[in-house]
Amino acid sequence: MSYSWFRVVALTLAVVVVTGCSKPETPQEVAAEFWQAMSEKDADTVVELSTLAAVSDFDSYAQDWSDIVPDFGRVVIDDREATIVTRLPVEDGVPGERREVNTYLVERGGDWLVDYDRTGEAIMNPSPFAGLIGEMNRLGERLTASFGQSSDDLSRQMDAIAREFEAYSDQTQRRAEQAMEKYGQALQGLMEELEKSIEEALEDNQQAPERERGALQRTAADLNRSSDRLDKPDFDAFADSSRALAEAGARFSRLSDDTFKSYKRTWDAKLEEITERTRAFFEELHGSE
């Protein structure tokens, strides 16, 4: 993330703090004021800026946040939900040491609010993989029925996973090199099998409509390019793979049943296998913490 972006965010947050009279509007502004209120033990403001129902429910997440100044990282906004990577001081840690958690927000009635309970779960059980595992479970359900889903909807779901990969990349790469290497090899093999099956379908159906053949040719090329990146697996490569698979699923769903029906069943099963392997990868990461 560029220095200029950080500078813009810092200036924006400084204006909010100094003026003190304008209501925060963006997820970033709400998160900044929420954590300022947490540091001041200002329960009224916490309730105003979050989903916490009552001042009496304010518990500070069982920690002392006095005078904390968090750093904010990647912001992901997906429709009415937002996630902001938040770097907080480590309690009883080395001065300057920080840990990464997520501040979760939801939009209600046109206003962004911190999801108090979900953010608290991230604070008190700070697994960098827990949210991803949940997303992968939901993704698995969608991929299993991918050919019955809207292709645009499938692409949005896969792209959301790609953004999650990117949001956690710095932290997870330091912790999971061996698991990433094994998963990268497995994912590469599965994508190559999918690519080979597509090439066989093209060879067997040379009289298929040119539009459909062109879509499959582009899909095979995308899978080839993306799988090549897995020679040196990292979370950027995994994000790229998820986007390539999203586009593959979208294109498969637009094919006519008459020409590629048997192959579509094979591709459906392959996408499900990829999903299961990806879920196992995140469970392995989660279990190794």
Results as ranks from 00 to 15, higher is better:
57 D>N: 03
12 T>Y: 09
58 F>H: 01
96 G>C: 06
116 Y>N: 10
111 D>V: 10
98 R>S: 05
48 E>K: 13
21 C>P: 12
17 V>T: 13
71 D>Y: 14
120 G>K: 03
106 V>Q: 13
111 D>G: 01
13 L>H: 13
59 D>A: 12
90 V>S: 08
40 E>G: 04
77 I>A: 08
11 L>C: 08
113 L>T: 00
65 W>G: 07
93 G>H: 06
118 R>F: 03
74 R>Q: 09
64 D>V: 02
73 G>M: 06
80 R>H: 10
48 E>N: 02
86 T>Y: 05
42 D>C: 03
45 T>H: 07
23 K>C: 08
9 V>Q: 15
60 S>N: 09
80 R>Q: 04
98 R>P: 04
54 A>N: 15
70 P>Q: 00
8 V>M: 13
110 G>I: 06
58 F>P: 11
119 T>H: 12
35 W>Y: 12
29 E>P: 08
97 E>D: 15
88 L>Y: 04
26 T>M: 04
72 F>I: 00
6 F>T: 03
83 T>M: 11
52 L>E: 14
61 Y>F: 09
98 R>N: 03
80 R>M: 03
14 A>V: 06
68 I>P: 05
89 P>M: 01
30 V>H: 04
57 D>W: 02
20 G>I: 08
57 D>S: 00
71 D>H: 12
64 D>I: 00
16 V>W: 11
27 P>N: 04
107 E>Y: 04
57 D>R: 02
49 L>Y: 15
82 A>H: 04
37 A>W: 03
61 Y>D: 05
65 W>N: 06
88 L>G: 08
80 R>S: 09
29 E>G: 10
81 E>W: 02
116 Y>E: 04
39 S>L: 01
110 G>R: 09
117 D>A: 13
88 L>R: 07
108 R>N: 05
18 V>S: 13
31 A>C: 00
85 V>R: 15
99 R>K: 14
110 G>F: 11
72 F>L: 06
28 Q>C: 00
21 C>M: 10
27 P>K: 09
42 D>K: 07
58 F>E: 08
102 N>E: 05
19 T>N: 12
54 A>H: 15
109 G>K: 05
45 T>C: 09
106 V>N: 06
61 Y>E: 00
45 T>F: 01
85 V>I: 14
23 K>T: 12
111 D>L: 03
16 V>P: 11
75 V>Y: 14
22 S>Y: 15
58 F>D: 10
38 M>V: 14
63 Q>Y: 07
34 F>C: 00
62 A>I: 01
104 Y>R: 10
31 A>H: 07
17 V>W: 11
67 D>L: 07
58 F>K: 12
62 A>F: 05
17 V>H: 13
71 D>L: 10
31 A>Y: 05
71 D>G: 11
99 R>H: 09
12 T>F: 11
107 E>A: 03
49 L>G: 12
60 S>P: 02
66 S>W: 12
64 D>P: 04
29 E>N: 05
73 G>P: 08
74 R>T: 05
40 E>P: 12
112 W>I: 01
41 K>H: 10
21 C>I: 07
78 D>V: 10
81 E>N: 06
21 C>T: 14
50 S>R: 05
33 E>A: 14
68 I>C: 13
62 A>E: 09
28 Q>K: 02
86 T>I: 05
55 V>G: 01
113 L>I: 04
25 E>Y: 15
42 D>R: 05
79 D>S: 06
26 T>C: 01
112 W>T: 06
120 G>V: 00
35 W>L: 02
